[in-house]
């Protein structure tokens, strides 16, 4: 999929734009921050000599040396722990989880140490934990998960899930500069499929906590994030063509702090809302967003709130099973039509 960004449309002749993949955007954000801030460095499994399992940090070891690109033992708790300690001393570590599924062994360090340390002690920890999330790559139950809901109930964490290359770059830069712990979920399905023309002579910085309207519309709001933004966009195009209805797509970009105001304002305008996420349904973000809308936009609703999510099962390996597990464009079209007809 190729995303036309506002900057790119009609301005392709400008020489200071360059086609950038989602993965390159992540690389560039880290590279540029490491170039300008000596406090920024990378730790993780196989991030140095190998350049990361997905080659996100390829070339970093040669450029920055082994003291700033640190290959660690397979010890996620120790890695995150060290990141907290080094952050206390003024460094800004970026920790790579080889797959975001492997954040589970670091759960204690994240929820009990990193998230609570400022509240308990007044001393914060500026650190980023990033890693590839999401399904669609036939990687099985332990290389495909979306883990945001595990952390949603923990005060003290920020969470980011970009859908575009521009946001991947701008949000990672903001995450690195943020004074508190940020979990950065990069969708592996988007790594090389999302390509955008991004400016090379402008600092792309996207503030945390601000949603983005991916598509404007007046008949229905789809609230979503990550890879589902693209499936929602496909669904919206099909409905515009076949049904003539205009769907607004709100890309949350940051999950915590959640841009509740943007959600509420859009739903108050359209009166109908579908919440789409790739994580399982029970206890997912859609539940929280539904509750907020019930509290803040109840009188504006013309239809029940609906969710399209993954199944409440582990994510299976075999392609037909995985496809059935994951929310598909057809599901979004079907749910949207149901809401539009209500």
């Amino acid at each position: 999929m190729t995303i036309e960004t506002r900057e790119a449309s009609g301005q392709d002749t400008r020489s200071h734009f360059k086609e950038t993949t989602y993965l390159e955007a992540i690389r560039e954000a880290m590279w540029e921050e490491m170039k300008t801030d000596p406090a920024v460095f990378i730790m993780g499994e196989d991030v140095g000599a190998y350049g990361g399992a997905f080659k996100v940090t390829e070339g970093f070891l040669d450029e920055f040396g082994s003291s700033r690109v640190i290959d660690t033992p397979i010890s996620e708790a120790a890695i995150v722990g060290a990141a907290i300690g080094v952050a206390h001393m003024g460094f800004k570590p970026i920790v790579e989880m080889q797959f975001i599924d492997f954040i589970a062994p670091a759960f204690d360090m994240i929820v009990n140490f990193a998230a609570k340390v400022r509240y308990r002690t007044g001393v914060g920890a500026s650190l980023v934990i990033r890693g590839p999330c999401g399904g669609g790559a036939h990687s099985g139950p332990f290389h495909s998960q979306n883990v945001e809901s595990y952390f949603a109930n923990v005060a003290g964490l920020k969470m980011v899930a970009p859908a575009t290359a521009r946001d991947a770059k701008g949000l990672l830069r903001a995450a690195i500069r943020d004074p508190d712990p940020v979990l950065y979920f990069e969708h592996k399905f988007l790594y090389r499929r999302v390509k955008e023309m991004l400016p090379t002579d402008e600092e792309i910085l996207v503030p945390l906590g601000v949603a983005r309207t991916h598509r404007t519309g007046s008949d229905l709001t789809i609230v979503t994030y990550g890879a589902m933004v693209h499936k929602a966009a496909d669904a919206a195009e099909r409905i515009a063509e076949e049904d003539g209805a205009q769907i607004e797509i709100l890309d949350l970009r940051t999950l915590r702090p959640l841009d509740s105001e943007a959600i509420i304002q859009s739903v108050r305008r359209t009166g109908r809302v579908l919440i789409v996420h790739e994580a399982p349904r029970f206890g997912g973000f859609a539940g929280e967003i539904t509750a907020q809308l019930c509290e803040e936009a109840f009188e504006f609703l013309d239809a029940p709130i609906r969710r399209v999510t993954a199944l409440d099962t582990p994510i299976p390996y075999s392609p037909p099973l995985e496809d059935y597990y994951l929310p598909q464009t057809d599901d979004i079209v079907k749910a949207s039509r149901w809401l539009l007809a209500y």
């Binding site: 995150v80 060290a82 907290i84 300690g85 080094v86 001393m89 003024g90 204690d108 009990n112």
Partner: peptide
């Protein structure tokens, strides 16, 4: 002083980061 948390053994992991800062 680095304060521990109640899940045990964790402060060593964090203190390693302080030591890493000294080395860096």
């Amino acid at each position: 002083l680095l304060g521990p948390i109640s899940p045990l053994g964790t402060q060593l992991c964090v203190l390693n980061g302080v030591a890493l800062a000294f080395r860096l």
